[in-house]
Amino acid sequence: MKHRGRGLASMWYPVGFTGYANPSGAVVKVNEDGTAVVLTGTVETGQGSLGVLGQIAAEALGLAPNDIHIISGDTDTCPMDTGAIASRTTYITGNAVRIAAEKARDILFEVAAEMLGVKPNMLEAKDHKIQVQSFPSRNVAIADVSSRAHNGIGTPPIGSATWNPPMVPMDPETGQGKPFGTYVYATQIAEVDVDDETGEVEVLRVTASHDCGTAINPMLVEGQIDGGVYMGLGFALYEEILFDKAGKQINCNLTNYIMPTTLDMPAIDEDIVENYDHTGPFGAKAVGEPSLVPTAPAITNAIYDAVGVRITALPATAERVLAAIKAKRAREQKQIPA
């Protein structure tokens, strides 16, 4: 017989190490026609970070994402970056790109200020124009400003920056300190069916609500959540590297290392909590790693809700769940007075 259950789990996850240096650099160059190029030492590993960095640069420059071209992943041409690790790209590389873009923009402001007859600090970049704050009708096209900067005045708008979360050493004895710049939070809820004859767990749906600060690109955030739930589900139910007694892996191929297929995946309902973190670029924090963190306990809590057994060792394979169900029945038998 199948039993339905639901379970919930919440989590927190840190963004931006402060315990040791993990900087990122960035260079932003505005071209003669008002488009721009960003140089970053990070690498695209599938999460869509290059698009996000482009959107950050575009926002800072008053341009559109498609106006930005990103050059990445080459130690000869790109500035230092600690890399695509620890959910740090949007937060740390993003801050570096934002600051570098603002420096390039400041050069544009200098030029535009002269063209508009105002002070640079009265300007803002928006809609491909540089305009006087509160007086948007007084504006010049960024293309014209940049062209003049390059060819008229000789101050090409190039900005470079590095960013490292402010470092705070930790007390080695007590571990006290401020180890990270900020944290993100999430809650996931899973609904499952548990077959009490085979122990099989079917995850029917997962609702995942994540705080990532500002979602620079909500579509990519959803993609990260989907992939995180996928990995969390594998962690919860299937995945385990098995070793023999002599330390050799037994199931070292994709036939026997069980990762979820389409038929094992539930529907996922993603939710992005509205938030703005003042330490991140345009309020952004992170979502890459955190998305997988609460899935497994949400599922095992749902298993408990369904059949009343607590799984304390992952993965909750059908065999383990059935064994737990049998053990519970045996306990209950004992408790019934003869």
């Binding site: 085979t198 099989e200 299937y238 036939t255 026997n256 069980i258 979820p260 297929t261 389409t262 038929l263 094992d264 394979t317 059908a318």
Partner: peptide, 10 residues
């Protein structure tokens, strides 16, 4: 049939 997962299972 019962396998360790639903899709592509031994």
């Amino acid at each position: 049939k019962f396998g360790l997962r639903k899709g592509q299972a031994l």
